[in-house]
């Protein structure tokens, strides 16, 4: 699996708009948003804003960094590849 990230401004409606589109090959699988200062100890961390396909659902973890986010996404997609 080859994930790659593309920077994007995400319309969260609030200050934290710095985001990454996460692609698995050519397919968009998730959107991550970096949390702003208002989140205290979570400021600067990466919020799993939305997942697509097998990543859709109620789970919205927060990751310390983008590497951790990619590891989690890779793990969750691994069981569902055709």
């Amino acid at each position: 699996m080859s994930l790659h990230l593309k920077p994007a401004r995400i319309a969260t409606g609030r200050g934290d708009e710095d985001g990454r589109l996460v692609f698995d090959g050519e397919r968009l699988v998730a959107v991550l948003v970096q949390l702003s200062d208002q989140y205290g100890p979570d400021a600067g961390k990466w919020f799993f804003e939305v997942g697509l396909g097998w990543l859709a659902g109620p789970k919205h973890p927060i990751f310390a960094n983008l590497g951790e986010a990619q590891d989690w996404i890779t793990r969750h997609l691994a069981g569902h590849r055709s």
């Binding site: 969260t12 989140y39 919020f47 919205h60 927060i62």
Partner: peptide
């Protein structure tokens, strides 16, 4: 059924 971040926003 919402994340803490969504509730905050």
């Amino acid at each position: 059924g919402l994340s803490n971040v969504h509730v905050n926003r």
